[in-house]
């Protein structure tokens, strides 16, 4: 109980104090996870939309694979990206390992399947409704993809939030490919892991509360936006 109240006090202190180190960690967390969401969205949203409208051999297998990859353990994802980006790996010449770029890459790999699978689910129901009308307009499945993505923009916001939540909460991948370097690749989750290692459990918990507060804030903002938009678009 003592630890918990100490954690609450520490969390309030962290948020109020404006410690530049903590602010840097928060900023990097946001930058890494939001960048990962953007990159994963550039791949995952069109892929999900394609799977929603197109019928081709192997589609079922691809959907099953994506659904399975939604459960990809971050550590495995991190290891995979580590081996790719290591100087001894195929992409070693990029020099990305132990940089925020590597963390963005790992989180993007982690959440792209989530975005693709959820996008497919959302847009498949839209497509059922739209398909005949769009074909009447002369728009085939390919032309339907941007239409569905645009019309689904508010529902897809929730999908992006799911991706952001997963990215900002994971520790396994960024720990491995980022190295938790102080002032350079340390983010909220790896900082929490570090403070736990050092046995400073109240501080670790306080950082966790700060992380939750940030995720909550992002979600609340998106929810407000979505609420307004839903009232608008019906």
């Amino acid at each position: 109980m003592n630890d918990l109240s100490a954690a609450f006090a520490a969390a309030a202190g962290l948020l109020a104090g404006g410690d530049p180190a903590v602010l840097g960690i928060i900023g990097l967390s946001l930058r890494v996870s939001l960048s990962a969401v953007v990159i994963a969205a550039l791949v995952g949203l069109p892929l999900g939309a394609l799977l929603a409208v197109a019928r081709f051999p192997g589609r079922g297998a691809l959907i099953v694979t994506l659904n399975a990859l939604m459960g990809l353990p971050p550590v495995v994802c991190g290891l995979l990206v580590y081996l790719l980006l290591s100087r001894s790996g195929p992409l070693g010449s990029l020099g990305l390992l132990f940089t925020p770029g590597a963390m963005i890459a790992a989180q993007a790999v982690l959440i792209a399947p989530i975005l693709a699978a959820l996008t497919r689910q959302v847009l498949e129901s839209y497509w059922e409704e739209y398909a005949e009308q769009l074909r009447s307009f002369g728009a085939g499945p390919w032309r339907a993809i941007p239409t569905l993505l645009w019309d689904g923009r508010f529902a897809l916001l929730t999908v992006l939030l799911a991706g952001f939540g997963r990215a900002s909460a994971e520790v396994g991948a960024v720990m491995i490919v980022g190295g938790n370097i102080e002032g350079f690749t340390r983010v909220m989750t790896t900082a929490i892991a570090l403070e736990t290692s050092k046995g400073d459990l109240p501080l670790a918990l306080a950082l966790g509360m700060v992380l939750m507060a940030i995720v909550l804030g992002v979600n609340a903002a998106a929810q407000t936006l979505r609420g307004a938009a839903t009232r608008w678009a019906g």
Binding site: E132, Q133, F137, G138, A139, T147, F154, A233
Partner: peptide
Amino acid sequence: FQRPVLLRRSVLANTTYPLGL
């Protein structure tokens, strides 16, 4: 169609959409 299929857009955007296509 019997049940109109309207895009999740404004009235005007619904009307311009097929014209763009």
